[in-house]
């Protein structure tokens, strides 16, 4: 392998510094003793203690997690169904409209999605709260799930399903016993994507939430508008830590699975 040129080394170093230094500074300053975020006054974990006592943040975090779990689960079911219909459904009336409705939310500005859903909820007299946020999040994240799952379904060897049907499986058995295990990794990454999208969303949640339910991003946004605060730094650090651990674990598990699969294939080849 050729050594990397100095130009490439420099651009990677600078680029990754640009991506990671801001977050690093955020994390470092969350351990700052001083209330002033820009003056270093010694190491302390007091902002984490204060965060744990902040009822408003804790209850918002609970609402956020609840919304994310429910909406990503429904979105995964609906998105997988939609992907299956798009890839395997053949022709049916209104198919173009259907695929348009799957792809459009991916490029729709959040302010428009939020505004339109809010107008719908008010139009039908639905009180804004956890339910409306769940409905809104499910709708946009099912489209992401469907794109992820359908990209796996496209590359899937269809003769496997046909073999199962020939061997006496009913279509639902063939789906459960053959299709689902094969597309499972895509379904899981779809769920994870939907989950993080829901955790992250500020704009759509702001439109569709009511006084009864506030999510963490809404809470963070209203605190942050007033300026930088060490408590938010502490909260951000916790969130960054959770995501980092989650992504690293997922990729390690994934890597091990690929290695195992390759070994199995090699052994199968030998026999």
């Amino acid at each position: 392998m050729k050594r990397m040129s100095w130009f490439n080394t420099v651009s990677l170093t600078l680029g990754f510094a640009f991506l990671y230094v801001p977050m690093l500074i955020l994390v470092i300053y969350s351990f700052n003793e001083s209330k002033l975020v820009t003056v270093w006054a010694g190491f302390s974990t007091k902002w984490y203690g204060e965060l744990m006592q902040n009822e408003a943040f804790l209850s918002a975090a609970w609402v956020t997690i609840k919304v994310a779990v429910i909406s990503s689960t429904i979105a995964t079911v609906l998105g997988t169904m939609a992907a299956y219909v798009l890839v395997r459904g053949g022709r049916f009336m209104g198919r173009t409209l259907f695929s348009g409705m799957i792809y459009a939310p991916l490029v729709m500005p959040e302010v428009i999605t939020g505004l339109s859903l809010l107008l719908l909820f008010i139009g039908i007299g639905l009180d804004r709260g956890v339910l409306t946020i769940v409905l809104a999040h499910t709708t946009f994240s099912m489209c992401y799930v469907s794109v992820v799952v359908s990209s796996r379904l496209v590359t899937f060897d269809r003769s496997l399903e046909e073999a199962a049907l020939d061997l006496g499986c009913s279509p639902s058995e063939a789906f459960r016993l053959v299709t689902l295990p094969i597309i499972a990794p895509a379904v899981i990454s779809g769920w994870l994507l939907a989950f993080t999208l829901s955790l992250d969303d500020l704009v759509i949640a702001s439109f569709t939430s009511g006084p009864a339910a506030t999510t963490l991003p809404i809470k963070i946004y209203s605190a942050v508008r007033l300026g930088v605060s060490p408590e938010i730094n502490a909260l951000s650090t916790l969130m960054i830590a959770i995501v980092t651990i989650g992504v690293l674990t997922a990729s390690l598990v994934n890597k091990r699975q690929i290695v195992r699969q390759q070994r199995e294939e090699k052994e199968a080849g030998r026999n």
Partner: peptide, 28 residues
């Protein structure tokens, strides 16, 4: 690749917030 994707999974709001502390008048 992982290093490029990792920031994408962390909260958008937090990544924008990180710059508020860096760019302010008495910022980093």
């Amino acid at each position: 690749m992982m290093l490029v994707i990792l920031p994408f999974w962390t909260s958008f709001l937090i990544r924008v917030y990180a710059w508020m502390g860096i760019l302010s008048n008495e910022g980093f």
